[in-house]
């Protein structure tokens, strides 16, 4: 489904992504682990086209997408939620979701019809709102919504495009245990055929949902394997999980 080949990125002289290669199968749940500054967010930025790589290739369905813009990649079915909320602040929750749905459904350029009254846009809004537990807050102004709701909307925006590949950057960052549980259920409720890459710091969640785990350190892939293999791997324990596992 998604294949990354020898991907590199340097800012000035600092190599933030080093020769990263991996392959994600359709419907796979892939968790990306790594300490702060390992280059996880940078990897996502490269995948969606927000950053241009210094070298390497990205294939979606065996086709290179490195030459495509952010919006072109999004229209190929790549969707992403952000580590730091990146929402339409001065609009309502409903308007946020409708914009995402209309964009994905190609209704954003309509000159004579209102995309916000379109039946399938409205259905997607309701469905996604239900999914991210915002159904009761649709008319809330995003600016005045709670941090938790905004976090849910962040994922909701990515979901409302009905992606084929969903990239989630620390969706549970900064939220409490009950919301992490809720998010866990959300992940389990996602369609089986959806391919998901998720950067996650919560170990229980990561090990539970992952089909496979890729571990980054200093921009490099230092390990890849199943949850079980990752748990037991000495390198991984040393560079990252040492404290993580004790907590768990």
């Amino acid at each position: 489904m998604l294949e990354v080949k020898n991907l590199s990125k340097a800012f000035g002289g600092i190599r933030v992504t080093r020769d990263v290669s991996f392959k994600v199968e359709p419907g796979e749940r892939r968790v990306i682990l790594g300490p702060n500054g390992a280059g996880k967010t940078t990897l996502f930025n490269l995948l969606v086209g927000a950053l241009k790589p210094s070298g390497g290739d990205i294939l979606l369905d065996n086709e290179s997408i490195v030459g495509l813009s952010v919006s072109q990649r999004a229209r190929r079915g790549l969707s992403r939620s952000y580590q730091k909320n990146n929402l339409f602040e001065d609009l309502t929750v409903r308007e946020n979701l409708a914009l995402a749905a209309a964009s994905a459904q190609g209704k954003f350029a309509w000159m004579s019809r209102d995309s916000f009254r379109d039946k399938s846009v409205l259905e997607t809004v309701e469905e996604v709102a239900e999914h991210v537990a915002l159904a009761d807050h649709l008319d809330m102004q995003v600016r005045s919504a709670s941090y938790g709701s905004r976090r849910q909307l962040e994922v909701g925006l990515a979901l409302a495009t009905k992606p084929r590949v969903l990239l989630m950057d620390e969706p549970t960052s900064g939220v409490g245990p009950s919301m992490i549980d809720g998010f866990h259920r959300l992940l389990q409720g996602l369609p089986k055929e959806l391919t998901v890459l998720i950067i996650e710091h919560d170990m229980d969640l990561a090990f539970d949902v992952a089909d496979r785990i890729t571990v980054l350190n200093f921009g490099e892939v230092v390990f890849e394997g199943t949850s079980g293999e990752t748990r037991g791997n000495p390198i991984v324990r040393e560079i990252y999980l040492g404290e993580g596992l004790e907590d768990a």
Partner: peptide, 19 residues
């Protein structure tokens, strides 16, 4: 509607697939 989205957050609109 797209225009309002553009005003509010151009980057995110792009990430949603709008040129």
């Amino acid at each position: 509607r797209t225009l309002s989205g553009l005003h509010s957050n151009e980057d995110r609109l792009q990430a949603l697939g709008v040129n």
